[in-house]
Every structure is written in C-alpha cells, then in structure tokens.
C-alpha cells in the first residue's frame, strides 16, 4: 500500500534550497483556493456552533443531554457499522473472485463495480425506492420463487437504508481489497498447499492475513463515508432512522437553528476525523478514487 508520499521522491533529486524546492510553490494556487472556499466555510461552522445563540458550549451540552440527539448519533454509528459489515460480507468474496478469475471475467467484474461507483447516488437511491416498493421488483421476485408469501416492507425503514447504502458503498470496499489481493504472491498459497495444508487452511493462515490491509482500508473508508450520508437515508428511511446528516439539514433548513445545526455538524466532523485518526491515517484514498481504470 505505497502511499503517494513514499514514491514521490523516487527520483532522489537533491533538494535545491534546504527544505523547500521550487516545485513547492505550485501548490499555492490550489491551497489558496481551498483555504478561501473550503477551510474558511468549515471554520465558519465551528464558529457558529460556539457563538449562536450565545458564546459558549451550550449547544454541545444540549447535544449530549438530549436523548433525541444522542439517539441520532448512536443510530448513525449503528447504521454505518451494519453497512460496513454487509459491504465486507459481499465485498471480500467479490474481490477474491476478481483475483481468481480469467482476465476477461475479472475485467467484467471490475466494470460491474465501477459503473455504479460513477453513476449518481441520487439516481441509484431513486432506483432502490422503485425496486423495494411493496409491488416492486424485489418483492415480486421473492414471491415468484416462493421464498415469501406476502410482500415485505423494505422501504422507509432500517433494512431499506442498509440495502441502499450497502449498494452505494460496496465499491469503496471492493476496490481496496482487490488492489491488496493483487499484490499477494499466489506462490505462497501454492507452497502451503504443497506442504500439505488443505486449501481452506492455506487460505486462512496465508491468504487471509495478507489481504487484511485491504480489509482494514475498505472497512474504514465505508464506515467513515457512511457516517456523513444524507440523500440515501432521507429517501429510503423514515424519521425513526434519522442520521446525523439529515439532522444537520433539519436544524439548519427547518428549525433554522444554525447554532445547533453547526454543533451537530462539528460532532459529525470530529467523529469522522477521530475514527480516521485512530483507526488509520487517510488510508489509500488515492487508490480507491483514482487510477483504478482497469486490471493492471
């Protein structure tokens, strides 16, 4: 999992002027732009959370004392955990299959991950609202093959959000696991098997541990991205499953309480950053989002 920083200095050019070289200045325009239009707005939220309605941490005190807000935070963590779990359940064998198929099949499997990855979240969520209806495709299929008799309620509830979010975040799990698995030397497994290990044992003791960095990166990414979701829970869930993202919007747009809305935003931001910081540094974002154009 070479990060960009590791390979950046591969040319080993001697530094020109002590700690900075002239290429560094090229960062200035983008940093300036981000400082004005990105960092500053974030600080504004931080500021509003401790100045409205009065100076102090009253919003945060209220947040942790109110059963409603704490429930929303708990709900958000629980939802993200479920989504991470199901993404891992589907994503790991999927990535394994990609790595153990012919080039052509692997390519098709990769396209099947990348097409939804790059199509709009709103469109996919909307499609799920249609698919999961009482009279929708999923229910008619399940009734058709005789698994259930009456249509299940799959929309405007917990399972609905989990299904939709698992679908949307699955690529974030598959891609890091896939890229780590690609680098595992398959001779290790062959060696273990030729030394008498059964295939499952060879997998458990050799392959699985070697693939864990990808599992960690994918799980972290899915969990953290799920925390901030707004669109999908809003369309597939009910008020009972309100997550932090929706609560922030509600406070700002409907209650018009910018202080509380900002405080909720700050709690969400800090939760995100703490989990990122504790569980790992920003793992592998570049690998997941960028150069994953084809099986390399």
């Amino acid at each position: 999992m070479a990060s960009i920083t590791d390979s950046a200095d591969e040319q080993n050019r001697p530094s020109l002027q002590g700690k900075f070289n002239r290429w560094t200045w090229l960062l200035l325009p983008a940093l300036l732009f981000l400082a004005i239009f990105f960092i500053y707005p974030l600080f504004e939220i931080l500021q509003r959370s401790v100045t409205e309605p009065t100076l102090g941490i009253s919003n945060f005190v209220e947040f942790f004392q109110s059963p409603v807000f704490s429930a929303v935070l708990f709900n958000t963590l629980k939802m993200s955990f479920y989504v991470m779990f199901f993404c891992l359940l589907i994503g790991y064998p999927y990535a394994y299959l990609m790595n153990h198929s012919s080039r052509r099949v692997a390519g098709l499997l990769l396209i099947a991950v990348l097409i939804p990855f790059w199509s709009s979240i709103l469109v996919r969520t909307y499609a799920w609202t249609v698919l999961l209806q009482r009279t929708g495709v999923v229910n008619s299929m399940l009734i058709g093959i005789g698994i259930i008799e009456k249509p299940l309620k799959l929309l405007r509830n917990f399972p609905g959000i989990v299904i939709g979010m698992t679908h949307i975040l699955l690529p974030f799990m598959v891609l890091p696991i896939y890229s780590v698995m690609q680098r595992i030397d398959k001779d290790f497994v062959t060696a273990a098997e030729s030394l008498g290990a059964r295939p499952f044992r060879a997998f458990r003791e050799i392959y699985l541990p070697l693939s864990l960095p990808g599992v960690y990166a994918g799980s972290l990414l899915v969990f953290v991205v799920a925390l901030g979701y707004y669109i999908t829970p809003a369309l597939l869930g009910s008020p009972r499953e309100t997550m932090m993202g929706a609560m922030v919007v509600q406070q700002v747009q409907q209650v018009l309480d910018w202080g509380m809305g900002s405080a909720l935003g700050v709690v969400l931001l800090i939760t995100t950053l703490v989990i990122l910081g504790v569980v790992g540094r920003i793992v592998n974002i570049n690998e997941v989002l960028g150069g994953s154009g084809g099986p390399e």
Binding site: D9, L27, L42, G228, T272
Partner: peptide
C-alpha cells in the same frame, strides 16, 4: 506537480488537506 515534485515539511498533512474534500461529510461542507 507541487505535491509530486515539491519538497517541504508536513507533506503528508498538506496532501491530506488537498484530498480532504472527499472524506469530509458533504452536509458540513
């Protein structure tokens, strides 16, 4: 270009800031 070829302290942090719009929840932004 700056990130790949520049040499400066806290490079990891600067890179994290440039990439952070991806990871910060959109509602907050």
């Amino acid at each position: 270009l700056g990130l790949t070829r520049g040499e400066f302290p806290a490079k990891g942090l600067i890179q994290a800031i440039v990439l952070s719009p991806i990871i910060i929840p959109l509602v907050i932004i």
